[in-house]
Structures are given as structure tokens and as C-alpha cells.
Nucleic acid binder design. Structure first.
Length: 576
DNA sequence: GCCGTTTTCGGCCCGACTGTTTTCAGTCG
């Protein structure tokens, strides 16, 4: 089993939990958490770096000690320090930290005073009314603990983070409602929603308004609110009926930019910015930038960045993945925008499992201002999708030629989404592929192959000189299906060697490649096709999610295939 | 445990809200 970056990240976070419970030096704990975060969002596989004997201390936040520990984790899958801590305390103890309201200090009290070692033991003690007798605990805390334990099982099966598209459906009416309240001058959805993360844990709404504005009352009284968690003058938290937590923060106009920066995060980005401020003898908080007592900026985000000597940084980049350094060195990417997109390279029609006709899809693409649309229905092996065989594909090609004759301003590209068979061969013969403008291919079956076999299978498919794009490269479905085992780095390098490209599937359930993988593709020098995989007219609008993910992956217009005109694109589709 | 235009020691981001406090610790973001 290869050790992934996320595995290393997990080991470090667990270790930090235990050190935290033991009351170790908080800065040592921070170093572990910091390392967990950095490794988790690194675009290179650390296991690969170890295999190539690269110097891990080159990674910011990793010193001699952690570099050694990473090597141990890569070799053995675990860390002796963590195993020892688990033995010393209890293997299930860190699970207690997952319960909201319980941090290291309280877990330590539970352990020291009552010998509580697991969630089950905690539940029992709470049910017997013993927890409330502990120092720092009370009846309220005890009932909250019981309530949260009850929720653990529900959330585990559902997946706690909401997909961005689902969050959008909640947010838009809420923002519409809040905007109408008299006195509200500015409103933004901040947090991971603004950073366009693929999922959001909660929603952070920021409002600028005067002191007498009733926005807080109106917010907790909103029709979707099921429960109010906290209610203050400047901050309130509620839970909506669908389970999502929504926080509202109210600030004066003069602080709006500082607050927007603060609440957009990420936390790691904010820390990086504040550290720079500190060196300049400045203090940044959600109310502004301060020199001593005096506020010197805060009205806009741009003002705040300017005070620390930085240009404004796009929200999608704010993950402390190198954007702060890039800003300092004036080499921030000029991120791709939705307006740069000139066409969609992966859509389905009623010829296979799409719900809209070829002609309707073409008209919808025209309305979006696209110059081209690739009609890429499934091939025959995907029988459930009514995939096209050779004969029906030839018929569709004729139909596309006919439509292209009468469509003005939009070119339909003759395409197909070929199924990659287990052997790596494709399920239509080369002679029909020659008549197509674009050939894309995907894995739709046999997700359980070994990493080696899956990787070989995909690379073999790209060996076929007619193939242009490998679609939804990891096969994952957000919150539903893990990626299949595949050496994506090898696939990327193989694609690069062959003049193939990778898709960033813009469907909000997929967003596959993810942000980190996009960044890696760019570093390798691959072009990415942002495509919707639309099965209906509405789905064509998924492009915004794909562009958001691409922006998180630092992609610029030149990194994206479908920002090109058809003439340019044709050139990129020539195989080496 | 990491890091360095404060460079091998001595620092390490900042504030709101809650509950259990009698002046604040713990947790969260």
C-alpha cells in the first residue's frame, strides 16, 4: 500500500491530538499540525520524494526531526511516537477531540479524573450525570456532549461537508433575504464558499451595517433556522434544517475589508499574512490593520494587503500553498475566469444517456456564448447509458454535419467518450475514430484493480494515437466514492509524453482533478480541459464549479485547453 | 518542533462567545 500525503497528514494530526491532551509544549503541537496541513496540500507525493531521496527539509515547516518522521511513516505506514502515545494513553482517546465542545484540556480532565478512554465510556458517564461534577464542566456541557455523541453516527454515513453546489442553493436565497433588510450596506459569503472549495463545512456570511440595523434578529429568525447555537452583537451561529451551520458576522463599514479577509480565510493564509504584519510592527485583526492603537487600513481587502506590502490575492489561492510568497515576489498567477472559456469539451445528448437533444444542447451552448461544443456521448461498452456502436456513431456524425451546416456561430465537434476496457484497449475501432474531431476516454468499470494495473490500463489507453483527453482521472465522487487506486503522477507524465491532456470534470459531484492535482498537472506542463460532462441543458452551467477548482489549482488561461479558439485548439490536439 | 534582514536562542496570530467562573479558561474559527 502506497503511503499518500493524506496518510502522513493524518498521522501528524493524531500525534498532535495526543500531545495536546498530554499538555505538551503548544508550539511543538503547532509544528505537528502545521506539518499535517502542509503535507496534506502539497502537490507532490511525499512518498515519491522519499523514494527519490529528495531533501524534505526544503519543505517550509519541515525540519530535520519531522523529515525523519516522515521517512518512517512512508516506510512503515505509522510512527513509533504515535504508537507509543496510544499505548500510554488509549488508542481511542483522540476520537474524543472530534466531539464539538471538547478540546484537549477537557479530554485530559475526563481522562485524569474519571479514566474515560473512549466515546462509549464518555456517553455512559454523561448519562449517569457524572460528567457535570468535574471541574470546568456543568450540566449544560454534559447535555451538549450527549447530544453531540448522538450525532456522530448520523454524520459518519452522510459525510459532513456539503458540496459546493448544494451550499449554493442554501446561500442564494439567504443572501437575497438579508440584502433586503434596511441598513445592510454590504454583504458577502466568505469562508471556504468564497474560496470555492469543493465542499463547505459551514457558511460564513459577512455584513456591513450601522449599529441599529436589525440584521442579527432577522438572521436568527430566518425560516430555515432550526436552532441558534450562539447569539451575540457581532456574531451569531445557527443551524439550518438541512444540518448546515451558518455564521453571521456584523462589522462596521470601516472594517469590512479586514473582516472579509479574516472570514474568507483560510486560517493558514491569515496566519501567514499576520506574521508579515508582525514583522512590520503592525497588528491585523478582523477590524483592521493597526499601528499601535491607530487603525491605518480596513475598508477594503486591497487596503489591508497593501499595508503588508502585498497585492490583493484571489480568494481561491488563499490556502498558504505558496500564494503569499508568490505575491511577495510579484509572480501571482492570472487565474482563468469563466469568461475565458470558449467551449465545452464533454457533453452528452439523448443519443446516449443525456436528457436533452443534440440540437437543444447546441442552442444552449450558443446562448452561453461558446464557439464550440464537443458532442461526446458514451461508447457501446457502457450499455446502461445506451452507448453508441460504430453504426450509430456514424449516424450521429452525419447529424452533426447537418447541424453544423445550419448553426451560425457555434461549431459542434464530433467526439466520443470511449470506455477504457480492463486491458486498456478502447471499445471502438480506430477507423471510426479517424472521422472525429476529438476523442476522450474514461474508466467506467473495474475500479478495484491494483494501483499498478489501473495505472497501466490508463496509460495503455493513451497509447492509442487517436486519444486526446483522459476524463475524470481519479473516478472519485465527492462524499460518495473514493478515487480508484492510480499513480496519477505517472499518468500525468505519460500524458505529457504522448501529447495527451487531462480533464478537470466540472460536475459538482466530481470536480476531478482536484485543486492540488490541477496544480501538479500545471507543474508537469500539461494542459487541462475544463468540461462539464453535461447530461442536460442546465448542466452546461456546471462550468463555474470547474473554473473555481481550476483557479484553486493556480490554472491560468494558457493552461486550459478550452480557452483556445477552435483553430488553436486543433493544433493542441495533434499527437506527438 | 520550526525558524532566522531580531540568525543558533527565543520567539511562535488574534478575538468572540459560552459556561462556569467570581475575573476567566476553554473552545472555536
Amino acid at each position: 500500500m502506497p503511503v499518500h500525503n493524506s496518510d502522513i497528514s493524518e498521522v501528524f494530526n493524531r500525534t498532535a491530538d495526543y500531545l495536546d491532551i498530554k499538555g505538551e509544549n503548544p508550539f511543538r503541537i503547532r509544528a505537528y499540525r502545521n506539518a499535517a496541513r502542509i503535507i496534506g496540500s502539497l502537490s507532490r507525493s511525499v512518498a515519491d520524494m522519499v523514494a527519490h531521496e529528495e531533501d524534505l527539509t526544503k519543505i517550509q515547516g519541515i525540519g530535520q526531526d519531522l523529515a525523519g518522521k516522515i521517512k518512517e511513516i512512508v516506510k512503515t505506514g505509522t510512527l513509533p511516537l504515535l504508537e507509543q502515545l496510544k499505548r500510554e494513553l488509549s488508542p481511542e482517546l483522540s476520537a474524543l477531540m472530534e466531539i464539538p465542545g471538547l478540546g484537549p484540556k477537557r479530554v485530559k480532565v475526563l481522562y485524569d479524573e474519571m479514566g474515560i478512554r473512549s466515546v462509549d465510556e464518555l456517553r455512559q458517564a454523561a448519562e449517569e450525570g457524572k460528567v457535570r461534577t468535574l471541574p470546568g464542566f456543568g450540566a449544560k456541557t454534559e447535555s451538549v456532549i450527549l447530544e453531540e455523541i448522538g450525532k456522530i453516527k448520523e454524520t459518519k454515513k452522510g459525510g459532513l461537508r456539503l458540496k459546493l453546489a448544494v451550499a449554493e442553493q442554501v446561500v442564494e436565497p439567504l443572501v437575497g433575504y438579508l440584502k433586503k433588510i434596511a441598513g445592510v450596506k454590504e454583504i458577502d459569503v466568505a469562508g471556504s464558499y468564497r474560496r470555492r472549495r469543493e465542499t463547505v463545512g459551514d457558511l460564513d456570511i459577512l455584513v456591513a451595517c450601522g449599529q441599529s440595523c436589525p440584521v442579527m434578529d432577522k438572521f436568527v429568525g430566518y425560516e430555515d433556522v432550526e436552532k441558534t447555537l450562539s447569539r451575540g452583537k457581532t456574531r451569531s451561529s445557527v443551524v439550518f434544517r438541512n444540518g448546515i451551520q451558518v455564521d453571521l458576522r456584523v462589522v462596521p463599514e470601516a472594517s469590512y475589508g479586514a473582516a472579509l479577509l479574516y472570514f474568507t480565510g483560510s486560517k493558514a493564509h491569515n496566519i501567514a499574512i499576520r506574521k508579515i504584519a508582525q514583522k512590520k510592527k503592525l497588528k491585523i485583526n478582523e477590524y483592521g490593520v493597526f499601528r499601535g492603537e491607530k487603525r491605518i487600513a480596513g475598508r477594503t481587502e486591497k487596503d489591508v494587503y497593501k499595508q503588508v506590502g502585498l497585492p490583493w490575492i484571489e480568494p481561491e489561492l488563499r490556502e498558504d500553498r505558496g500564494e503569499v510568497e508568490a505575491a511577495q515576489e510579484k509572480r501571482l498567477p492570472r487565474l482563468v475566469r469563466l469568461e475565458d472559456i470558449r467551449g465545452d469539451l464533454h457533453v452528452h445528448t439523448t443519443w446516449s444517456d443525456g436528457r436533452s437533444s443534440l440540437e437543444d444542447m447546441a442552442e444552449a451552448a450558443k446562448r452561453l456564448g461558446y464557439e464550440y461544443l464537443a458532442v461526446s456521448d458514451h461508447s457501446k461498452h457502457v450499455t446502461v447509458a445506451h452507448g453508441l456502436d460504430e453504426k450509430r456513431l456514424s449516424q450521429q456524425i452525419k447529424e452533426i454535419d447537418r447541424l453544423n451546416g445550419k448553426l451560425k456561430g457555434l461549431r459542434l465537434l464530433k467526439s466520443i467518450e470511449l470506455d477504457i476496457l480492463e486491458s486498456g484497449s478502447l471499445d471502438l475501432p480506430d477507423r471510426v475514430l479517424e472521422d472525429l474531431d476529438l476523442v476522450i476516454c474514461s474508466v467506467h468499470s473495474k475500479f478495484n484493480l491494483s494501483r499498478e494495473k489501473q495505472t497501466e490500463r490508463i496509460i495503455r489507453a493513451m497509447d492509442n494515437p487517436h486519444v486526446h483527453i483522459f476524463c475524470h482521472p481519479t473516478g472519485r465522487l465527492i462524499n460518495e466514492r473514493r478515487p480508484y487506486e492510480v499513480d496519477l503522477e505517472r499518468v500525468m507524465n505519460a500524458a505529457k509524453e504522448r501529447g495527451c491532456h487531462l480533464e478537470l470534470n466540472a460536475h459538482p459531484d466530481r470536480l476531478d482533478l482536484d485543486d492540488v492535482e490541477c496544480k501538479r498537472a500545471k507543474e508537469i506542463g500539461l494542459k487541462v480541459a475544463i468540461a462539464t460532462d453535461a447530461h442536460s441543458l442546465d448542466d452546461l452551467r456546471f462550468m463555474r464549479f470547474g473554473v473555481g477548482q481550476a483557479r484553486r489549482g493556480w490554472l491560468e488561461p494558457e493552461d486550459v485547453l478550452n480557452t483556445k479558439s477552435w483553430e488553436e485548439l486543433e493544433g493542441f490536439l495533434k499527437r506527438y
